[in-house]
Design a protein around this nucleic acid. Structure first.
Length: 639
RNA sequence: GGUCUCGUAGCUCAGUUGGAUAGAGCAACAGCCUUCUAAGCUGUGGGUCGCAGGUUCGAAUCCUGCCGGGAUCACCA
């Protein structure tokens, strides 16, 4: 049990003894004392005044005296403005640090056979385009969450559901067939996912121009509109006006409907889309030629993704493919239909009615019996449940799908999955550019591979200028450059609250100084350097600090922060937030650098003090390393 | 329009179940390497916590209303 809980217990007992009343846990507030004040833990006495019926000062003094008497670790206390600040004895902290320094996995809980199994789904790419910055955020969050979950004593299965089928996949297939001239990743020297992505873009361009052609042909039927440009402008203007408070008047509304009709007609009758649909039908019928093409192009993409995943340093325990799960989902829905959980409309489509839950009706199977997105997620859930005894399911998916997961939770619950109702949609915010969302059509997408490569280059240039990797081989140095580059990128993404949208400015490169990953990595390298120097000088570094030594303010701050690490890990797990860990790591590194600047370590002449500081350095290094591991960030020995 | 979400320094972000004088970094300026790694440390300037009410010993934090941004409400995934 940690000291905070102990103090809380004593506080509750003390109030009972002094004032004869039970208080609840919310009234017993023990928090870490602000840095600028004397003390280690603070008890807020305001909530206790109703019970004590005394002034804040008197209450604080009485409780302070009681706690000091009950808990030998409390050496002293002071009262400021009704806040009771407790000061713990130096040897309490020194014993604590001696305890911490020998724990390799300090801050982590380990899972045993009875631990809950948490499955975490993340990444979940489409196989028609390469990964971009948005995917990076998803991957880094998912990977970090899996480590945080493991450190909180869960058994963890990392999983990925690959979106490998559907009309969008057929688009790039068709484009390759039409215009690819047999090009392959090998023949073009292009990464498979990028090559396929190019054909998806090509399809889009051609499709757009076909739509324009159709609109042009049909435009004579709409006398009010001159040409295609005019049509587009009018339509866009009406659309945005519709969104305003003013809305559309009757005439405009009619015009809007006409535009919409024409636009839909063109989209649905362009030859390319008709061909694509035909291709999807053939795929579902397992037409050998289409199926072979699909398999070939998907393999290209997977090879490309593997490279990107490796570059980012993420991996999975189990990968599912929607081409395997979508038929399972269909069966599940039909099963639910038999049990009257769902209903069928006259046209043959299957729906769930969620109006009693405050939501609307949701389509589960089209009238031709084919699956939609929701159906596939149900199927995937079934397969996962068959494969693992899942206690908790976490989906790392963007916040644009909040509604989808609200519905999915209800549907899975209806279908009898025990974790359905409590599934966690880890809903993270979008990565935006200074001018808004990334748009592939406008070429503003930040490619994942390019970004990582750029970062590695920057790290290499910077590192070489500083020249601190003497004695490293090219390979070793290259590994450090990569470590720093990824540290910068990962920390940049993970330090912000995952639920919030974040901004990335491609004009400004990601920093390596200040509140950054490299700053924290640097702090670790600095600490390791001390131990190398100690070895050179023949200074012994024990695993135990003497307990009769005085500790200064900076040292005390550091010990308190380290002592709090397990609480931070627990909180990060509870609220699903790597940012909590990132901010902790930064604060600790910052505090350490101040200490490093102010206090001699190897040069300290008092042997006891020197030993204590060395043990402290070791603990800080370990804690930084363990915190960064939870973010998926490695720390170097030198940089 | 319904639902959800966000709004903190010029910019990017912290700010625990409501707690003490709202903090970092970047950018700007001024300092610190003949002692352990200067990717560091110190200092200066920079705030109506979107606005207005309410709840109470106490509100950036909770409630209500408004303003502003974003998402979503598809037989797309």
């Amino acid at each position: 049990m940690n000291i905070e809980m102990q103090l809380k217990g004593i506080l509750i007992a003390g109030v009972k003894e002094l004032y004869g009343q039970e208080i609840n846990k919310n009234q017993a507030q023990v928090q870490i004392t602000r840095k600028d004040l004397t003390g280690d833990f603070t008890i807020v006495v305001f909530p206790l005044l109703k019970v004590s019926k005394k002034s804040p000062e008197d209450t604080a003094n009485e409780i302070g005296a009681y706690i000091q008497q009950q808990e030998p670790a409390v050496a002293n206390f002071n009262v400021v403005k009704g806040f009771l600040n407790l000061e713990l004895a130096a040897d309490y902290w020194l014993n604590l640090i001696n305890d911490i320094v020998v724990q390799e996995k300090y801050g982590y809980k380990t899972a045993d056979e009875n631990s809950p199994l948490m499955m975490i789904e993340y990444s979940s790419p489409n196989t028609n385009k390469p990964l971009h910055l948005g995917h990076i955020r998803n991957n880094l969050l998912g990977y970090s969450l899996s480590r945080i979950a493991a450190a909180n004593g869960n058994k963890v299965v990392k999983t990925n559901i690959v979106n490998d089928r559907g009309i969008h996949i057929c688009k790039s297939m068709l484009a390759w067939k039409k215009w690819g001239e047999g090009v392959t990743p090998e023949s073009s020297g292009k990464k498979g996912d990028h090559l396929v992505g190019d054909f998806y873009v090509k399809f889009d361009q051609e499709y757009k121009s076909e739509i324009d052609t159709i609109i042009k042909e049909k435009i004579s039927e709409y006398p009010a509109i001159k040409d295609v440009d005019d049509f587009k402008k009018t339509f866009a203007a009406l659309k945005s006006k519709k969104k305003t408070k003013e809305g559309l008047n009757d005439a405009e509304n009619e015009q809007f409907k006409a535009c919409e009709e024409l636009s839909k007609y063109a989209e649905n009758n362009a030859p390319l889309i008709l061909e694509t649909r035909e291709m999807l039908r053939k795929w579902e019928a397992k037409d050998p030629e289409v199926y072979a093409l699909w398999e070939m192009m998907n393999q290209w993409v997977y090879a490309g993704f593997d490279v990107s995943y490796k570059k980012l340093g993420v991996d999975f325990d189990k990968i599912y493919y929607e081409s395997d799960t979508y038929t399972v989902g269909r069966d599940m829905v039909l099963g639910g239909l038999e049990k009257n959980l769902f209903y069928k409309r006259e046209d043959g489509s299957v729906w769930a009615n969620l109006e009693d839950k405050g939501l609307d009706e949701k389509l589960l199977l089209r009238k031709d019996g084919t699956s939609v997105y929701m159906t596939q997620d149900i199927g995937t859930a079934k397969l996962r449940f068959d494969d693992y005894s899942i206690d908790k399911m976490v989906y790392v998916v963007g916040n644009e799908q909040d509604y989808h997961f609200q519905v999915l939770a209800l549907l899975l619950d209806k279908l009898g999955f025990k974790w359905g109702k409590d599934l966690v949609h880890f809903s993270y915010g979008m990565v935006e550019l200074p001018h808004g969302k990334m748009k592939s059509r406008e070429g503003t997408v930040v490619d994942a591979d390019d970004l990582v490569d750029e970062m590695v280059n920057t790290a290499r240039v910077m590192s070489k200028e500083l020249g601190k990797l003497d004695g490293y081989s090219d390979e070793e140095a290259e590994a450090v450059f990569r470590m720093i580059a990824l540290g910068a990128l990962k920390y940049f993404i993970l330090k912000v609250d995952p639920r919030k949208n974040m901004t990335f400015n491609p004009e400004e490169s990601i920093d390596f100084n200040g509140n950054t990953g490299p700053f924290i990595q640097y702090t670790h390298a600095r600490i390791q350097s001390i131990f190398r120097k100690a070895a050179e000088k023949g200074i012994e570094v024990a695993d135990k600090a003497p307990t009769d030594v005085e500790i200064g303010e900076k040292e005390n701050n550091l010990i308190r922060m380290i002592a709090n690490f397990p609480n931070v890990v627990e909180e990060a797990g509870r609220v699903y937030s790597p940012a909590v860990i990132a901010n902790f790591a930064y604060d600790l590194a910052k505090e350490y650098n101040q200490f490093y600047h102010d206090c001699p370590i190897l040069f300290e002449e008092d042997e006891n003090k020197r030993m204590m500081r060395l043990v402290l350095c070791k603990s800080v290094g370990k804690t930084i390393k363990n915190a960064m591991w939870l973010l998926g960030i490695d720390v170097p020995e030198k940089m």
